[in-house]
Design a protein around this nucleic acid. Structure first.
Length: 517
RNA sequence: GGCGCCGUAGCCAAGCGGCCUAAGGCAGCGGAUUGCAAAUCCGCCAUCGCGGGUUCGAAUCCCGCCGGCGCCUCCA
């Protein structure tokens, strides 16, 4: 089975072949930390976290880097507005970003390099580019000269001529070419500044990613990720300056994820297009407001309404290259789908008395234990679903397809539990129980690759929880007596009244359980 | 205007030339199960935007049209 990935550079699916056999380097463009993260900022990290999980599972040793842009015009402006230093603002928003990543289950990142911690390296790279004739200083700035780079535009498939034709009036007309971009920017008084051979200033936007990616992953590395919106100019420029500097290929596979959009109107948190008329802009803004009432603003707000795991599942339910329409309805729908998994997990824990979340499962495919032989038909089905899960993941990380097989696995296991009456008399059937447990372990193993079902979903917490639980147990016990006495009127009344309080009762073969909705 | 992407059931979505008389989820309908429910299971629910073409064969490739969207502004 071979892994194939869609490479933006070649616009085709290619067989995945790392630079160094057995090892993979992934660099993902991270956030500019000037405001709280919104849902769109979570898409890339969740996707590439999943990609790393899968590659690791496949046996690769993976290094995953996400950069933090902590110096930038937006930071400077926002910090000024809030009456704080750029450093303070960056620290606060970086923490917000980390908090959200943790909640989303993004936990495979090895390095979070900050731009401000790599100024010296950036200056070295800029100097090299000047020496090699690809860049020129200009009144305290330094620019990369795009016409010196033979294949400039190869990633986004633009030619310098086209860009010249469509170029708008530039603020700085002294640049040799309007498309030339800044490597180093002279600072104005009061702005953060670092000394440099070209005078006090700060780095341009693209240079940090070149420097930090190559520092942690080497001059040629495997996977560079980011949102589709970064394709041009950011990635194009990153590619140009990196290859001009080293003379080596920069990145093997460019992977771009689709953007989160608010109900098909406009991407979340983005600026509005300058070609549309005013009406369109207002409509887009309105749609943004409506659909993005929670997540478009900040992820934190969204998490007050939906468990982070549901949001993660939502992101992974569609292919990473497709745009996703964000809406609370959609996420609520995904949440309903997930509930079935949680119930199966509870069923498992009831039947076996084991803690599903504490189960040790294989983290590498080669360590995956073989399934039992019997019962053959059930095992065959489980095996087939496992294969289809991998087939999907091998096909450009098709998490949507993989999620589908997880649902089918759930269905198959539930059917098996029913058929063998594992909640009742069948519990003593050791063969059936072994098969059931193996299937559940596989479910966990596969879910781990997607980064879901790793720990119990947090119930709405309250100080009275323990007491509530005891009271519910008491009501259930009283109701059981009523049912025994065939006093169904009373039994139903208890159940109906509890339903009004959002407590659902289930009379199962081996007893009644209650669940708070 | 330039470059590019997308259009599959009520909604979301996989599918990348034959395994598709098209996964999966949500909603809906019928049934099994249940004292009744809940949960679960079984079954039903699309010919793939439209029109041409290529091919023995197309949702999948090509052309045109219609509709939606992105980038061309330091937005992930």
């Amino acid at each position: 089975m071979t892994l194939r990935v869609y490479n933006t550079l070649t616009r085709t699916k290619e067989e995945f072949q790392p630079v160094v056999p057995g090892k993979v380097g992934i660099y993902l463009c991270g956030p500019t930390v000037y405001k709280p993260a919104h849902i769109g900022h979570m898409v890339g990290p969740v996707i590439f976290d999943t990609i790393k999980r899968y590659l690791t599972y496949c046996g690769y040793e993976v290094t995953f880097v996400i950069n933090i842009t902590d110096v930038d015009d937006k930071l400077i402006n926002r910090a000024r507005e809030r009456g704080m230093t750029v450093e303070e603002l960056a620290r606060e928003m970086t923490q917000d970003y980390f908090d959200n990543l943790e909640l989303m289950g993004v936990e495979t990142v090895d390095h979070f390099p900050r731009a401000t911690e790599h100024i010296a390296e950036m200056q070295q790279m800029i100097s090299r580019l000047i020496e090699k004739g690809y860049a020129y200083p200009l009144e305290g700035d330094v620019y990369f000269e795009v016409t010196k780079d033979e294949d400039y535009g190869k990633l986004s498939r633009r030619s310098v001529e086209e860009m010249l034709a469509g170029a708008r009036v530039e603020a700085n007309e002294r640049k040799r070419n309007p498309a030339d971009f800044a490597l180093w920017k002279k600072s104005k008084p009061g702005e953060p500044a670092w000394d440099s051979p070209w005078g006090p200033g700060r780095p341009g936007w693209h240079i940090e990613c070149s420097v930090m990616s190559m520092k942690y992953l080497g001059e040629t590395f495997d996977i560079h990720g980011g949102g589709l919106d970064l394709l041009f100019p950011h990635h194009e420029n990153e590619l140009a300056q990196s290859e001009s500097c080293t003379g080596k290929p920069f990145v093997r596979y460019w992977l771009h994820n689709g953007l989160m959009q608010a109900s098909g109107a406009a991407k979340v948190g983005g600026a509005h297009d300058r070609h549309g008329d005013l009406v369109d802009q207002l409509a887009a803004q309105e749609a943004n407001k409506l659909a993005g009432s929670k997540g478009a603003d900040s992820v934190k707000g969204l998490f007050e309404v939906f468990p982070p795991e549901t949001v993660r599942f939502f992101i992974l339910s569609t292919h990473y290259r497709s745009p996703i329409d964000f809406s609370e309805e959609r996420i609520a729908e995904i949440g309903k789908g997930l509930e079935g998994f949680y119930r199966l997990i509870e069923t498992y824990q009831r039947i076996t008395g084991k803690d599903f979340y504490a189960l040790e499962t294989a983290t590498r495919r080669n360590d995956s234990p073989p399934l039992p032989e019997e019962p053959a038909d059930f095992i065959a089905e489980v095996q087939q679903l496992r294969d289809r899960f991998f087939e999907a993941m091998d096909d450009d990380f098709n998490t949507g397809g993989a999620v589908g097989t997880l649902y089918e696995l759930r269905r198959a296991i539930n059917a098996f539990v029913n058929q063998r009456q594992l909640e009742g008399a069948g519990r003593s059937d050791r063969q059936a129980m072994a098969a059931f447990e193996a299937a559940m372990r596989l479910l966990k193993e596969l879910a781990n690759i997607l980064g879901v079902f790793r720990r119990p979903v947090q119930k709405p917490a309250g100080a009275d929880d323990e007491m509530v639980g005891r009271l519910l147990d008491l009501l259930v016990a009283i109701r059981a007596e009523a049912r025994k006495a065939k006093n169904f009127a009373m039994a139903d009344k208890i159940r109906d009244e509890l339903a009004k309080l959002n407590v659902t009762l289930e009379d199962r073969p081996d007893g009644t359980i209650w669940r708070r909705n």
